[in-house]
Design a protein around this nucleic acid. Structure first.
Length: 345
DNA sequence: AAGGCGGGGGG
DNA sequence: CCCCCAGCCTT
């Protein structure tokens, strides 16, 4: 039996029951694919349910405020996905009469939709024979066909897309694309895959050559940057605080946080007393103490954030202040959300 | 071609 | 602790 039929057969027996497998609605498929970018099914699933509940149609999503979309996305990471999701919903409603493009090329024009996502939507919704190549597919193909070209090189990108196209099942592309991903996620897992019980073990080159642990190959290039964050949690006489929205280029764009003083190295209370007014417009000398004496280390894949929260009690009434009980409405990074959970005035 | 962008779970 | 996840965008 050929590769694609074995994959399809395995899928029939082993596929999980997932909500986006019950529909061909482009809106729902698109939403599920954006959520699942670089995200495990288990983590994305509750977000998908909440998005569908709150935004049953693309028009509902387009009519929302970005803050609400980001709030619903909070905790899922890669927030450009949420911003692009919202922007694309508006474009689909305003410029495409509420209908998603029905071709691979048309889909590719949407913000936040790249080669993988366009292929997924095209094949699942419109039966277009375009192969998906995600992390799972890279792994399955690299192992089964014994390919040691790095998957994150430009040569690898081209090679695996071509290979995927060559071995796909065009008649059942909708099931096949989901099948090979599901196979990679469950049977051909990244670590300690169950090769003994695998229905494709007889033809698997990596298994024959004892290369399961070495494939797929990847060029490692993650460099971690250390940063020191001092969050200034102002408390005024009416128990209000200051919150601001992150703008510009870096992490957490358009999410909210307390006024931030970033430093080259760890700061103590004396340094903070000297420099807090670079960020805050407070005239008197407030009472300042730290919430955590040891840095809270928040680890992103590419940055380690050594963080202190400073409580600043001021006599000044904050005109733009936000009540602590209103913080729950603002989309914030997990780092801030964790602080809010544990901080009691 | 390379770098930036989150957060969580598993081994 | 390291790796990887239904990737995409900018430079």
């Amino acid at each position: 039996m050929i590769f694609s039929l074995k994959i399809l057969l395995w899928y029939q027996k082993n596929k999980r029951n997932l909500p986006w497998r019950k529909t061909k609605d482009p809106y729902r498929i698109w939403l599920s694919e954006i959520i699942l970018q670089q995200t495990r099914v288990a983590q994305g699933l509750p977000y998908y349910e909440r998005f569908i509940e709150r935004f049953p149609t693309v028009r509902d999503l387009a009519n929302a405020q970005e803050n609400e979309v980001l709030k619903l996305w909070q905790g899922l990471g890669y927030y450009s996905r949420a911003r692009n999701l919202h922007a694309t919903a508006k474009i689909v409603v305003d410029e495409y009469k509420g209908e998603f493009p029905k071709t691979y090329k048309g889909l590719l024009k949407l913000k936040g939709v790249g080669d993988y996502t366009a292929s997924a939507i095209a094949s699942i919704c419109f039966d277009i024979p375009e192969p998906v190549v995600d992390g799972n597919v890279y792994r399955v193909l690299a192992r089964y066909y014994g390919v040691d070209i790095p998957i994150n090189s430009s040569k690898g990108t081209r090679y695996f897309k071509e290979l995927a196209r060559k071995v796909m099942n065009t008649e059942q592309i909708r099931d096949y694309n989901q099948a090979i991903m599901e196979f990679g996620a469950i049977q051909c897992a990244p670590k300690n895959p169950d090769c003994t019980g695998c229905p494709l073990n007889d033809g698997c080159l990596a298994l024959q050559q004892n290369q399961i642990g070495e494939l797929p190959k990847k060029i490692n290039k993650t460099k971690v940057r250390n940063r020191y964050f001092n969050y200034l949690v102002v408390v005024d006489p009416k128990n209000r605080t200051l919150l601001q929205q992150r703008k510009g280029k870096g992490i957490w764009q358009n999410l909210w946080e307390f006024p931030l003083l970033e430093s080259k190295e760890d700061m103590d209370v004396h340094e903070l007393e000297r420099s807090f007014n670079k960020v805050l417009a407070i005239n008197e000398t407030p009472e300042i103490y730290h919430f955590n004496s040891e840095n809270i280390v928040h680890k992103l894949s590419h940055q380690h954030l050594y963080t202190k929260f400073w409580i600043i009690k001021t006599d000044t009434f904050l005109k733009e202040g936000v009540g602590f009980n209103e913080l729950k409405d603002y989309p914030v990074p997990v780092l801030i959300a964790d602080f809010i959970k544990t901080f009691k005035i």
